[in-house]
Nucleic acid binder design. Structure first.
Lengths: 185, 185
DNA sequence: TTCGGCATGTAACTCGTTACATGATTTT
DNA sequence: AAAATCATGTAACGAGTTACATGCCGAA
């Protein structure tokens, strides 16, 4: 699917930067829904250059250190928009190790299960608080639809809603494990 | 992380079965949060056998066809429970191509974006209906906490809540794209 | 008798992570 | 002077998909 390819083109379309900078981007704005390490990014940039979707200029930091500043080409921009316009199904399984563990959790005694859910709940509550902190940069105003901040905003909203949903689900799991009678829905 | 290993041990702990049957299990109960093809399952079963976590007996279907019915060993059960008891962080990124596209969506005109969200909305509404159909097998009663149906139930609940959250988010995205004025939160 | 499902495997490839490897620059 | 950060790459491995390859069984 070459998803990394399009992630790099998308980031370079916002601003020209080095492979090192691209790696950092994945630790910030995009962190919730995509990630890549420099060891994957450098070879992909080379491939993108061979394909003519990016170009680069070598700049000197200090006296000696060379860095390659990558820039998207017109061809790269076309390729990015083509990908964004696709109607892919993408109906594949979102793999989730925690939910897999819950699926098999009847092999644990009830107290261990509750502990497992409580620990996970704490993590997601922490994560939600962190995201709410990020959200403050928007100052309660929806950004203009034609700036890249708009996508950033919608994705952050999605991440917060996901964390809220997981918190609700985990509380429900704890309640179902704690009730003395099985009860009805 | 050898996640497939534990998925197979978990399924075999519920019932002995063939590699072919295991592959089918991934298309049903576990579909929402894990998946594997037979081409990955057969080599993993071989490895699990070498490690002593599973054993198998050869049965004959009809006159000639041999099938290997795999069975979890005591050692395999210990290994499964050990894994379930771990407190892993698992705080890694849940990769999501659709959200990546939304992140870069300001490169599309507003009508294309709304179409993209509407198509995705339809898919998730359809998926939710399908999950609600699956949920009817529980007949409105929470299964006993010590049967494997309980994990099944909690995971299905999680899948439904996820779909509901995504539907809400997509409707919000459409509203934000459709509003004539930017507005405030 | 043909078609869909049962049943098991391997090969080639892509994607992603961890570790290896190096060296310059800036900050404390 | 040491430590953190900037900067770029490669190698080995593990995980997962697609395609290749074979053949039996039961039902229509």
């Amino acid at each position: 699917m070459r998803t990394l390819k399009y992630a790099l083109l998308g980031l370079l379309n916002e601003e020209s930067m080095t492979g090192y900078d691209l790696a950092k981007q994945f630790d910030h704005a995009l962190l919730e829904f995509w990630h890549a390490k420099h060891s994957q990014i450098y070879p992909e940039l080379k491939k993108l250059h061979d394909e003519g979707f990016v170009s680069y200029t070598v700049e000197i930091s200090g006296n000696v250190l060379e860095k390659k500043v990558y820039c998207i080409t017109d061809s790269g921009r076309d390729e990015l928009v083509r990908w964004l316009s696709l109607d892919e199904d993408m109906g594949f399984t979102h793999k989730d190790v925690f939910r897999l563990r819950v699926f098999f959790s009847s092999n644990l005694d009830i107290d261990s299960r509750i502990e497992m859910f409580e620990r996970q709940l704490l993590r997601h509550e922490k994560r939600l608080k962190h995201l709410q902190g990020n959200n403050e940069k928007f100052g309660g105003v929806v950004p203009d639809r034609d700036t890249h901040l708009f996508g950033d905003f919608l994705v952050l909203k999605s991440a917060m809603m996901r964390e809220e949903m997981l918190i609700d689900w985990l509380k429900y799991c704890i309640a179902m494990c704690s009730e003395s009678d099985a009860g009805t829905l």
